[in-house]
C-alpha cells in the first residue's frame, strides 16, 4: 500500500521467491507468504480499511499465511498500540504491546549489530528508523533484543521485526522467511 515494498521484493527475489504487490483482495489469492513492510502504519491501515483489505488480510494471516512484518508492519499486527493515532485500528493478531516511535524521533534513528537466536555466523546489521518499542510480550518467542527490549519476535507463522533487513544486503532473514512460507 505504502512504504518500503520494493526493497522487500528485491530481497525476496534474491532469496529465490516470486513476488507481487498486494493492493486488492484478488492479489491475496494463492499466496504462500505476505510482507507487511515499513512505512507509516497510519497510512497503511487507513488505506487497507478504505479499500476493504483489512479484514481479508486478517483472515488470511489467522488462517496461517506466513507473515513477515517490519517496523510499521509490526505496529499494524500488534495487539496493543501506545502513542498511535486516536482509535488507530490494526490487525491485533500479534500478542505484543508496542509504543509507536518508542525509540524517539528521526534524529534518534540508529544502526546496531544484533545477535539473532538460532542464526549462524556474524551478528545481523540492525537498521532502526523511528522504530516501535516492544513494551510487552505475551505468547511469542523473542528472537533478538536490543537494550533489554525485544526487537524480533516469532508467533507461529508470524515473524515481526523492529528493524529493516530490506535496507541491508544481508539476506539471511529473508531466506529464512522464504523457507517458512514454503513449509506448508
Amino acid at each position: 500500500m505504502q512504504g518500503a515494498f520494493e526493497e522487500h521484493m528485491r530481497a525476496l527475489e534474491a532469496a529465490g521467491a516470486r513476488t507481487r504487490l498486494v493492493r486488492t483482495r484478488e492479489d491475496l489469492e494463492e499466496l504462500d507468504g505476505i510482507v507487511l513492510p515499513g512505512g507509516e502504519s497510519t497510512t497503511m491501515t487507513m488505506l487497507m480499511e478504505r479499500v476493504g483489505l483489512l479484514e481479508p488480510v486478517r483472515e488470511a494471516i489467522q488462517a496461517g499465511l506466513a507473515t513477515l512484518a517490519t517496523c510499521a508492519g509490526m505496529v499494524v499486527l500488534a495487539r496493543e498500540i501506545t502513542d498511535g493515532m486516536p482509535e488507530q485500528k490494526g490487525l491485533g493478531l500479534l500478542d505484543i504491546g508496542v509504543r509507536r516511535n518508542g525509540y524517539g524521533r528521526q534524529v534518534e534513528s540508529f544502526e546496531s549489530p544484533l545477535h539473532i537466536e538460532g542464526m549462524d555466523g556474524t551478528d545481523f546489521p540492525g537498521v532502526f528508523i523511528r522504530s516501535p518499542l516492544v513494551e510487552r510480550t505475551g505468547d511469542v518467542k523473542v528472537m533478538a533484543t536490543y537494550d533489554g527490549h525485544p526487537v524480533a519476535v516469532r508467533q507461529g507463522r508470524i515473524v515481526a521485526l523492529c528493524f529493516h533487513p530490506e535496507l541491508t544486503s544481508d539476506l539471511r532473514l529473508h531466506r529464512e522467511f522464504v523457507r517458512l512460507a514454503a513449509s506448508r
Binding site: 505504502q2 520494493e6 510499521a72 544502526e111 546496531s112 523511528r130
Partner: peptide, 22 residues
C-alpha cells in the same frame, strides 16, 4: 558506547524509503 550508530546516511536515506508510495 554500545556499538550503535545514530544519524548515519543509511538511516537518513532509510526514512525516505519508508515514505515511498506516500
Amino acid at each position: 558506547g554500545n556499538g550503535s550508530v545514530k544519524g548515519s546516511f543509511k538511516v537518513k536515506a532509510g526514512l525516505a524509503q519508508m515514505l515511498k508510495g506516500g
